[in-house]
Amino acid sequence: MRVEIIDVLKRFGKKTALNIPSWKLEDGEIVGLVGSNGAGKTTFLRLVLDLLHPENGRVEIDGISVSRSAAWKASTGSYLDESFLIGFLSISEYLKFVGAVFGLKNGTTERALEQYRSFLPSRSDDVSGKLVRELSTGNGKKVGIVAAMFIRPDLLILDEPFANLDPPSQIRLKQNILRLARENGTTMIISSHDLGHVTEICSRITLLDDGHIIRDEKTSSETLSELQSYFAS
C-alpha cells in the first residue's frame, strides 16, 4: 500500500504540531519514524489513521484520502497505545474480536495466531483467562501489537513497539516484523526511540523535529551512528 502526505498542517491551539509539505511511502517499504519527545511522531501516525483532522492538506492511502473513504481500514493493522485495547475482554476474546471485524472465523484466527504464540504473554505469566486491563503494560502492548499483525495487513502502523518490552520480546518482535514484511510484503510505519532496532528493521528513516521532517533517507551502515550523533548533540 502506498501512503502519501500532501501539504499537511496540524495545529493544537497555537502550536504547530506537524507541518509536512510532502512525504511518500512506497508499497512494501518499511519506514522508521524517529525524533525527540514532542517531535510529532504520534500526531503523524494519528493523521495517517484518520484519528486527527489536519487544518490543511490530506493523507492518501493508495491515492484515496483517508478521510474520504474507509476502504484502507480493511487492510490496515495498527497499534498506537492502550486505547487500541479493549480492557474488559480476555486476551483470547480480544484477538477473536479483532479477527472477526476483519472477517476471520475463529478457527482462522486461532491458526493465524499460532506463529505469535512465543511473543504473546504465556501461561507461565499467569495471564490465561485474565482480562486485558489486568495485564502489565508490556504484556498489554504485546497483545495490541499481535492484534495489529496477525490479520496480515497490507499496511502496519506501530507507535513505540519496543518500549516496555523485555529484551527477548524485543528480539521476537523484530523477527515477527521482518517475517510479515517478507511473507506478506506489508508496508510499515514504525515509530521508535530505539535507534538500534529501528535502523535494523527499517529500510528508510524519517527524522522529525518540532513537527518538521528534517531528514528522510534510505538506511545505510552509517545511519545508526549519524542518528546517535544527531541526538547526542
Binding site: L49, L51, D81, S83, F84, I86, G87, V98, V101, G103
Partner: peptide, 13 residues
C-alpha cells in the same frame, strides 16, 4: 472512551 481510537481505526464502519 477508553478504546474509541481502536474502534474507529479498525475495519468497522
Amino acid at each position: 472512551s477508553t478504546h474509541f481510537d481502536g474502534l474507529i481505526s479498525r475495519n468497522i464502519t
